[in-house]
Design a binder for these strands. Structure first.
Lengths: 143, 143
DNA sequence: GTAGACCTTGACCCTGGCGTCAAGGCCAGA
DNA sequence: TCTGGCCTTGACGCCAGGGTCAAGGTCTAC
């Protein structure tokens, strides 16, 4: 099959396939007129790549899986190199989740504190004229 | 103070400060010879920006905080626009963490399954000669 | 007066993963 | 024969957040 058909069947674009070829990730045979030619195995390789990318794997990280499949294994993750990528990815994900969770806590704390500070400001604003703090977009004092 | 000193005190670079100025995020006054001139307030604005960036805020997201500070408020998060950014960021973080956690589970499951499959392959390889499955980098059968 | 440290603007480079043109070749149907 | 649809390579753009020159101006110290 040609590049357009493969792209469509894999739910991607011809540009993407040419890009993968430029990386040596998914090389293509050529027909007499120079057109790229792919078969069902290439489709499987491509699906492996796209699946991993959906998981957030970088293209380079998909290479061991692709080569594993290409060397005749039934699954891309049948080879030790692929398992190693899985493990690295897990560690990466854990670290990322931990970092984001820590930030989430800090931002949440900041929000609560800032909201409390604003509530006090508003109370002071509606209360008998205290010191007129600099106001940003405080809702105008009630009627 | 001039740009070099401000950069050093804030732990960043002159290039970064010029970049922020080009975005209108941290404009600078100029001295007679065209040099940028900053004061302590600018340092506070810059610190606010850097702190938020460390939290993963994009530069545009820091703008409400900076403008809040510049309008005379004691803290960058004293204004409603800043609180809104906090809330959006929290939602974003929650979504991101949830997505990563789901992926983490799927990758973990894949790893376990692939490891089990490999263990079975190895068992078959060390057992009495079965069908010689295509081997990738299987450890050579023990002595 | 000159070396050296600072400053100026402008411009190109980098990362990843493509999108989007441009200019032209190949092939099938009417 | 012409139109339209596929294909080819090459090259630039984009996103953020700057890094890194280059070529030149300014100021201070010796």
């Amino acid at each position: 099959m040609r590049i357009g058909e493969l792209a469509e069947r894999a739910g991607t674009t011809t540009r993407t396939l040419r890009y993968y070829e430029s990386l040596g990730l998914l090389p293509a045979r050529r027909t007499g007129n120079g057109y790229r030619s792919y078969d069902e195995d290439d489709l499987r390789l491509l699906q492996q790549i796209r699946t991993l990318r959906d998981f957030g794997f970088e293209l380079e990280e998909t290479r061991p899986f692709v080569e594993c499949l290409r060397s005749g294994h039934p699954a891309g993750d049948s080879c030790p190199a692929s398992l190693e990528v899985y493990r690295r990815k897990l560690a990466e994900l854990d670290e990322c989740i931990a970092r984001l969770s820590a930030i989430r806590e800090r931002v949440g704390t900041q929000l609560v504190q800032a909201e409390r500070a604003r509530a006090e400001l508003e109370a002071a604003a509606t209360a008998p004229e205290g010191a007129p703090e600099p106001r940003c977009e405080l809702t105008p004092p009630g009627p």
